[in-house]
């Protein structure tokens, strides 16, 4: 199993690499287009601010490569947000894989949302052996509203997308690599079931 974590300078990639290591898989960090295209599974991480992360993607021309990938791709946190049509953060044009616009939480809730929330309405094999209302770890100020591509929901002042899926593309707003046993099951599903 050839797992590649896209290393474009925006993300806590070490933690994701270690999470796979705990599952018994050795993931490779790479920004090389050919190496990424040759992978069995691709992880698209991201933390930080949307427009600067998108700028880094463009500089490495990976914005052209990612939408053309045919193997399963998992965007995590900001990675998922960048796979959307756009983000309100820094007025950013996204990769347009998911047909939804990322927006900021309202002032009725504390922003960022930091901590463990529950996922419900689970709709994909990504959540095989994961029960409804399990807790996952999130830290974010912007969210993807519920849409046709939503495969898991969370609630923070309103219902929103905790995970998205379109064809071979998956995205989680939460951090599976930091979500204890539940997160490990989700990463295992992405590698072994999808």
């Amino acid at each position: 199993m050839n797992i590649v974590i896209i290393d474009y300078g925006a993300g806590n990639i070490q933690s994701i690499k270690f999470a796979f290591q705990r599952l018994g898989y050795e993931a490779i960090l790479s920004k090389d287009a050919e190496e990424i295209m040759a992978a069995d599974k691709v992880i698209f991480p991201g933390v930080g601010e949307a427009s600067s992360a998108m700028k880094k993607l463009r500089e490495s021309k990976l914005d052209q490569i990612i939408p053309t990938l045919k193997q399963p791709v998992l965007g995590i946190c900001l990675g998922m947000q960048l796979m959307c049509h756009s983000s309100e953060e820094g007025d950013t044009q996204g990769l347009g894989i998911f047909d939804v616009d990322v927006v900021r939480f309202s002032k009725d809730v504390k922003v960022p949302q930091i901590g463990w929330n529950q996922i419900t309405n689970l709709k994909s094999d990504l959540f095989k052996n994961v029960k409804e209302k399990e807790h996952i770890y999130l830290v974010h100020s912007f969210y993807a509203p519920l849409c046709e591509e939503t495969i898991a929901e969370a609630e923070y002042g309103l219902g929103y997308s905790a995970a998205l899926k379109k064809n071979n593309f998956y995205g989680t707003q939460f951090h599976p690599e930091k979500s204890s046993e539940v997160g490990e099951q989700i990463l295992r599903n992405f590698i072994e079931t999808i």
Binding site: N12, Q14, S15, F18, A19, Q21, R22, Y137, V139, H175, E177, K178, S179, S180, E181, G183, E184
Partner: peptide, 27 residues
Amino acid sequence: AEKVNIPFTVGGGISSVEDVDILLHNG
């Protein structure tokens, strides 16, 4: 970071962008 599957925060004596960069980079 290698062993623990929940989030963690590091503090104490951090005073520059470079300090933070290495700590976040390490997980």
